[in-house]
Design a protein around this nucleic acid. Structure first.
Length: 422
DNA sequence: TCTGGGGTCCTCACACCA
DNA sequence: TCTGTGGTGTGAGGACCC
C-alpha cells in the first residue's frame, strides 16, 4: 500500500546488471481489495473500495477505482463522491492477516533474511539464496508466480542494492511487475524522482523544500548538506542527503521488536459525556494490556491521545516506577491523564491508549499491583484467565465491566474525575 | 457530512543532578 | 554558597509511514 510518488521518467529499463543487487522489496498490489476480489470474483473489473464506517477512510481500492482519483487514506465520503458507482466493502482484517501470514511464510522459504515492514510488504536479502535459486530477478519472478498461484493476488518486486531503492523499484513496477535497478544506475534512478519519493519527506517537508525551490531528488542532492540541515533539521537533513545519493546502508533485519503497543478509536459521533469516554478508555486499556500479554512484554509508560471535535490532538503520558501488562493499571493511569486534559469544553472525537517503553515480561521484574499487594496476585491472574476465555470463545465472550466504580459520578459534560498519579 | 488506526522517530522544553 | 554547564530522563507534540 505504498503511497510514494512515482515518476514517469523512472519507469523504464535501467539495465540488467544484477551484481550487488541482493535486496528485494515485495509489495502486494492493492492488497485488501485484491483479497476481497479473490473472495468475490464477480467484482473483478469493477471499481471496489475497501473501507467504511461513518467517519472512515479508504483502506484500499482497486486500480479501476483509482482511475477516478480514489486513493488510500481518502475520506470515504470524498471517495464515494469521486466514484459513486464503486462497490464499497467493509474490511475483514482477519482474512488479510491470514493471507499475509501465508505470503510471509512463502518469503521465509526463499531466505531467512525477511523483514516484514507491514501487513503487505517485506524486504528480503537474497545474497545467500543466489546459489540455490539463481540471480535476484529469477528469485523475484519465482516469488511473484508463487504468490499469484497460491493466493490469487499479485505483487510487485523491486530489486536493488539497498532497501530504499528496492522499495522505490517495487512502487515503480506496480501493478504486477518487477523492476531491477542496477547498482551503477542507483544515482541516476534517484535523480529522476520527485523529492516526496524519499522516506521521511511527507506533505509538510515537501512544502518546506518547495519554498527553497527543491522539488526533485536531484535538486535536493545538489543542495549543500549544511543548508539542507538548516531547512529541515540536523539529523533529518543529513539523512535525506544520504538517501538522495542512494546511500542507505541499513541491513535487512528480521525479528522486529515492537516499541509500543496501543489502541485508539474514533467515535461515530463526537462524545460530550465523560462516562462514555472513560468506558471506551477502559475497553482500550484492556485491549492494549491483552496485546502486551500476548506479545509477552510489559511497558513502563502509559500515554493517552485525545482528539477533540475541532480536530485538535492532545497527548499525555506518565511513566510508572515498574512496568505493567495489567489492564486495570493501564486504565487507572489513562484515566488520571484524561482528568488532566483541558478539552476547552469540546466533545471528544477520538480517544487512544498506548503503552511504551516495552521490555520482555520474562526478564522484567514487575512490582505487584496495588490490589495484589493487599489481596494477593489476583488481578494479573484474573486478566490472564480472561485471555484464555477469549482465546477459546472469541473476543466478545468476556470483557471488562462498566467503568470501574472508583470516582464514578453523574456527568453530562467532558470533565473527568481527578485521579492521583503515583 | 472531510480527515482511521497502528506504529516510529525526532525535536523541543523542562527538571534534576553532578 | 552561587552560578554555569552538560548529561539524562520525561513529557508533549509534530511529522511521517503503511
Amino acid at each position: 500500500m505504498s503511497r510514494a510518488p512515482r515518476a514517469v521518467l523512472a519507469r523504464r529499463d535501467w539495465g540488467s546488471d544484477e551484481s550487488g543487487t541482493s535486496i528485494l522489496h515485495v509489495d502486494m498490489d492493492a492488497f485488501f481489495a485484491s483479497v476481497e476480489l479473490v473472495r468475490r470474483p464477480a467484482l473483478r473489473g469493477l471499481p471496489v473500495i475497501v473501507g467504511g464506517g461513518p467517519r472512515g477512510v479508504v483502506l484500499a481500492s482497486t486500480y479501476e477505482a483509482r482511475a477516478f482519483g480514489v486513493h488510500s487514506a481518502m475520506p470515504m465520503a470524498t471517495a464515494i463522491r469521486a466514484c459513486p458507482q464503486a462497490v464499497v466493502i467493509p474490511p475483514t482484517h482477519g482474512i488479510y492477516h491470514e493471507v499475509s501470514r501465508g505470503v510471509m511464510d512463502l518469503l521465509g522459504s526463499v531466505t531467512a533474511l525477511v523483514e516484514q515492514v507491514s501487513i503487505d510488504e517485506a524486504f528480503l536479502d537474497v545474497s545467500g539464496a543466489r546459489r540455490r535459486m539463481g540471480p535476484p530477478t529469477v528469485i523475484a519472478e519465482h516469488i511473484r508466480t508463487q504468490v499469484r498461484s497460491r493466493f490469487g493476488v499479485t505483487c510487485s518486486v523491486g530489486v536493488a542494492a539497498s532497501k530504499l531503492v528496492a522499495k522505490l523499484g517495487s512502487s515503480h513496477a506496480k501493478p504486477d511487475g518487477m523492476m531491477l535497478v542496477p547498482k551503477a544506475a542507483t544515482v541516476d534512478f534517484m535523480r529522476a524522482l520527485p523529492v516526496g519519493a524519499l522516506w521521511g519527506v511527507g506533505e509538510r517537508t515537501e512544502q518546506v523544500l518547495a519554498r527553497w525551490g527543491v522539488r526533485t531528488v536531484a535538486e535536493l542532492a545538489d543542495l549543500d548538506v549544511t543548508t539542507l540541515q538548516q531547512i529541515v533539521g540536523k539529523a533529518h537533513g543529513a539523512h535525506l542527503h544520504d538517501l538522495a545519493w542512494g546511500r542507505d546502508p541499513r541491513p535487512v533485519s528480521p525479528g522486529h521488536q515492537e516499541k509500543s503497543i496501543g489502541a485508539e478509536e474514533t467515535f461515530d459521533t463526537d462524545v460530550a459525556d465523560a462516562d462514555v469516554v472513560e468506558t471506551k478508555t477502559l475497553e482500550l486499556a484492556d485491549r492494549c494490556a491483552a496485546r502486551l500479554r500476548r506479545a509477552g512484554v510489559v511497558g513502563r509508560t502509559v500515554s493517552i491521545k485525545v482528539r477533540t471535535s475541532d480536530f485538535r490532538t492532545l497527548n499525555r503520558s506518565h511513566t510508572l516506577v515498574t512496568p505493567t501488562d495489567v489492564g486495570r493499571e493501564v486504565f487507572l493511569v489513562a484515566r488520571a491523564l484524561l482528568a488532566g486534559v483541558d478539552l476547552r469544553g469540546l466533545p471528544v472525537r477520538l480517544v487512544g491508549v498506548r503503552v511504551e517503553g516495552l521490555s520482555r515480561a520474562d526478564v522484567t521484574a514487575c512490582q505487584p499491583t496495588l490490589e495484589e499487594a493487599v489481596a494477593g496476585p489476583g488481578r494479573r491472574d484474573a486478566e490472564r484467565a480472561v485471555d484464555e476465555v477469549r482465546a477459546r470463545f472469541g473476543r466478545s465472550a468476556i470483557g471488562p465491566g462498566a467503568v470501574l466504580a472508583v470516582g464514578k459520578q453523574d456527568r453530562s459534560t467532558t470533565t473527568f474525575a481527578p485521579v492521583e498519579l503515583s
